[in-house]
């Protein structure tokens, strides 16, 4: 576990030194939000629309920001250093925690941008929204981390990640959108506990499978 935290620390340190992900993210979030504001007038923003847009922006920011975790190690050929000094499972967990941290930052940034600029983004159930952000950050990271490891060996990485992750992330996105609608006060008979349970069990399954299979991905 200490090794995992040290890998996480190393990743965060590298990120703070370059600020590559943070800057590209800020630019991405701000441009998308401004484009949305230009193209959609205030009274057209329904609760459903802003909840969906939130996760659309989140999905694409994740694709630009998070894909770096394994891909960067492979591109800079530093993965060998990690493999010599840690087991595949430890490397995976380090990257998973890193993804969760980055994804939380992504979602919190988008939340603030939406609160500032989008008129219908007003919470009627703030606790549920915080819970949604937390749980879906963990689920999205658990899916993206293993997929990032999968594409790191492939050739056209930039194209491949959205393609591979969309079907795997779709269940998470659908549930997150529904939960966000609920927390924004959309009238509904839906049961939020079911959705949260669904996401939690989905990420538990994905993380377990990733831990079992990560060693095959490094094999040559």
């Amino acid at each position: 576990m200490k090794i995992v935290l040290n890998i996480l620390y190393k990743d965060l340190l590298c990120e703070i030194r370059t600020r590559h992900v943070i800057y590209s993210l800020l630019v991405f979030v701000l441009t998308t939000v401004f484009v949305l504001l230009f193209s959609i007038s205030d009274n057209e923003f329904t609760v459903d629309l802003s909840a969906s847009l939130f996760w659309v922006v989140s999905f694409f920011s994740t694709m630009t920001g998070l894909s770096r975790s394994f891909v960067l190690e492979e591109e800079k050929q530093t993965i060998l250093f990690l493999r010599l000094n840690a087991t595949p499972e430890q490397i995976y967990l380090g990257k998973l925690f890193y993804s969760i941290v980055v994804n939380l930052i992504i979602n919190i940034t988008i939340t603030f941008a939406f609160i500032l600029f989008i008129p219908t983004f007003v919470f009627s159930n703030l606790n549920l929204f915080i819970l949604t952000i937390l749980v879906s950050s963990i689920s999205i990271s658990s899916a993206v981390t293993i997929l990032s490891a999968i594409i790191s060996k492939a050739e056209n990485k930039g194209l491949l990640l959205p393609f591979l992750s969309f079907p795997i992330l779709l269940p998470i996105l659908i549930t997150s959108i529904n939960l966000t609608k609920l927390s924004l006060g959309a009238f509904s008979f839906e049961n939020e506990a079911n959705y949260l349970q669904f996401m939690i069990s989905y990420s538990v399954v994905l993380i377990t499978a990733s831990l079992l299979f990560i060693k095959y991905i490094f094999e040559e």
């Binding site: 293993i146 999968i150 060996k153 492939a154 079907p167 795997i168 269940p171 040559e220």
Partner: peptide
């Protein structure tokens, strides 16, 4: 994915892992 990995061992392993992950997410 299969088309974009050159090394045969990696290709077989990685596409199998993706298939299993996809299978698990299909259950959900």
């Amino acid at each position: 994915l299969r088309a974009s990995i050159k090394n045969e061992v990696s290709r077989n392993n990685i596409s199998a892992v993706y298939n299993v992950i996809a299978g698990l997410s299909a259950i959900f």
